[in-house]
Amino acid sequence: MNEILDYFKKIDEVDVENIPPTYHVVNIVNVFRPDEVRVFDANKIIKITPRVKERYVKGPKAI
């Protein structure tokens, strides 16, 4: 693991002053969808949930 981190440090050599980051490689903005309802068959989802009780997803205790 440390060996890999050392390898990552290689990027320290690069001077990136005033260089903006490229978070998104495509140059598109403002992608929206209209405010419309489409109902998904929730039974298809809850079917794959490991533990369900009265349609609640059943999880372990909190504390």
């Binding site: 990027i11 690069v14 990136v16 260089i19 903006p20 980051p21 490229t22």
Partner: peptide, 15 residues
């Protein structure tokens, strides 16, 4: 800053 952000900036330089 040292890793993720810097990597994204180098990405700009490479591009």
């Amino acid at each position: 800053q040292a890793y993720y952000l810097k990597a994204q900036k180098i990405r700009t330089l490479i591009r």
